[in-house]
Amino acid sequence: MSATVAAALKKAAVYILGDEKKRGKLFVLIGSIVVGFIGLMCLPVAVLSSMGSMEVGPPEIDKSLFNESAIIAGFDSEQQAKITEIQNSGQAIEDAMTCAGIRSQTIKAQLIYMSYFGRVQNFNVESYANLFAVAPNDSDLIAAINSTYGLEIDYDEFMRTYTWVMNSTINEYMFSDESTKNCTDLAAWAANAYISGWGYMNGFIGERNETDRIRYADNAGLVLGYLNYDPMKKVFDSHYDTLVYTEQGGIDTMPDVAGLGLFDGSQHGIYVGNGEVIYSSESLGYVTKENVSSGSWSSWCTYEGIEYPQEVTDAIESLNEDSSLEN
């Protein structure tokens, strides 16, 4: 996408987001269109890009018309060819990211490519994916992409866009095993909520608020959301309405396994590795991340409905044996 098109996209997005009725139509569009490689993102961006030279009116719109075939049919042959090109490029990026073992970053890679690579020549998708694989953080990633391709991507600006895009959907690429509820994917779920800028709202488990169309979860709801989300159907169900947990031991006895729960006597956090925990904070009003050592976490726990590796089972058995000896 060229700089001109990117500017048109921003202009259209700001215009729509400033009007409640138009904003609702935009989010319907994002939430209902699944087109090829990026599902809930690619085609809406293409639509918004084309809107840069159009007048956007406020008429009532039949939401049933927001589907792939109906929208593509409204484009001319050149626009349809562009969408096909975007889909093919995006699929190639998805395949490369999967091969590189960083499937969860697929949307990020596709968004950067689609937004900034309109003038990049001799693009190699494997080399591109490798930049994501070796970058220790997003700041270094953007710097590496700028250096490699001669771009001038503003890190803060991109992250705002990326957060907004991620909040509009549930990242389908983050799950390692869609057939089970496991601690690895629970950690990925928490990390996605943090990256996507979920807010705190009582009674929510990750669904979007109908008023502002932002995703929210309360403290227990961050875990309940993962338990209730069906990644194959891409919907929330209601199998779990209460978070059932078992405190296993003090923080100093916790195995270093991402996806374990942390508890401070009143609120839950999800350990995501590297000494960090993610939780939905009522006092802050959003999902946040901190070092475990910086909080008041007193014990680690397991949750009913989540599968854990043998390392966790062994740790629990060891704690139980020690408790038996003390008694």
Score class of each variant (00 low, 15 high):
Gly225Gln: 03
Leu224Met: 12
Gly118Lys: 02
Ser318Arg: 07
Met54Pro: 03
Ala315Gln: 06
Tyr308Val: 00
Thr242Lys: 02
Ile278Leu: 08
Val223Met: 07
Leu243Asp: 09
Glu68Ala: 06
Phe236Ile: 02
Asn146Val: 14
Asp252Leu: 04
Glu276His: 10
Glu68Met: 07
Ser293Phe: 00
Thr148Ile: 12
Ala217Asp: 05
Val287Ile: 07
Ser2Leu: 08
Gly57Pro: 10
Asp185Cys: 06
Met232Phe: 08
Met232Val: 14
Pro231Ser: 08
Ala70His: 04
Phe37Arg: 01
Leu65Tyr: 07
Ile195Ala: 13
Trp198His: 10
Gln110Gly: 04
Ala46Thr: 03
Met166Pro: 12
Tyr245Gln: 14
Lys21Ser: 06
Ser296Ile: 08
Ile72Cys: 03
Ser89Lys: 12
Phe117Lys: 00
Ala13Met: 03
Arg103Gly: 03
Gly261Ser: 10
Met232Gln: 11
Phe236Asp: 05
Glu157Leu: 14
Asp230Ala: 09
Ala7Trp: 00
Ala8His: 09
Trp164Cys: 15
Asp212Asn: 12
Ala135Ile: 00
Glu78Asp: 09
Asp140Ile: 11
Met159Ile: 11
Ala191Asp: 12
Glu282Lys: 15
Val28Ala: 09
Glu157Met: 13
Ser324Tyr: 02
Gln110Phe: 02
Leu243Cys: 08
Glu85Thr: 01
Ser139Glu: 11
Ile61Phe: 11
Arg213Asp: 09
Asn327Thr: 04
Ile38Phe: 00
Lys11Val: 10
Tyr245Arg: 12
Gly273Trp: 04
Val34Glu: 15
Ala135Glu: 01
Gly265Lys: 02
Ser104Phe: 09
Gly249Asn: 10
Met97Phe: 03
Tyr149Gln: 15
Gln87Val: 07
Gln310Glu: 14
Tyr216Val: 00
Leu222His: 02
Phe27Val: 03
Asn327Pro: 00
Arg23Ser: 03
Leu224Cys: 06
Gly150Cys: 10
Trp300Lys: 01
Ala133Glu: 02
Ala13Phe: 00
Ile251Ser: 11
Leu262Arg: 14
Leu262Asp: 03
Phe37Cys: 11
Tyr149Ala: 15
Ala100Met: 02
Ile251Gln: 09
Gln310Lys: 06
Met51Ala: 12
Tyr229Gln: 01
Tyr162Ala: 12
Gly52Trp: 03
Asn228Tyr: 06
Asn122Cys: 06
Ser266Ile: 14
Gly249Gln: 10
Glu307Leu: 13
Thr242Trp: 06
Asp154Val: 11
Tyr113Gln: 01
Tyr245Asn: 14
Gly150Met: 09
Gly39Asn: 10
Ala190Met: 02
Asn67Tyr: 08
Gly221Cys: 09
Gly52Ala: 12
Leu26Tyr: 08
Pro44Lys: 02
Met54Asn: 13
Glu20Leu: 05
Asp185Met: 05
Ser139Cys: 12
Glu210Phe: 07
Gly39Pro: 04
Thr169Asn: 12
Glu55Phe: 11
Leu284Ile: 12
Phe263Trp: 13
Val35Met: 11
Ser50Phe: 01
Gly31Phe: 08
Gly285Pro: 06
Ser139Leu: 08
Phe66Ala: 04
Leu319Trp: 09
Lys25Phe: 05
Tyr113Lys: 03
Asn167Lys: 01
Ala12Gly: 05
Asp154Asn: 14
Glu172Arg: 07
Asn274Met: 04
Gly285Arg: 04
Val5Met: 07
Asn171Arg: 13
Tyr162Gln: 15
Ser283Glu: 07
Asp76Met: 11
Asn171Ile: 13
Ser299Met: 05
Gly199Ala: 09
Glu326Ala: 10
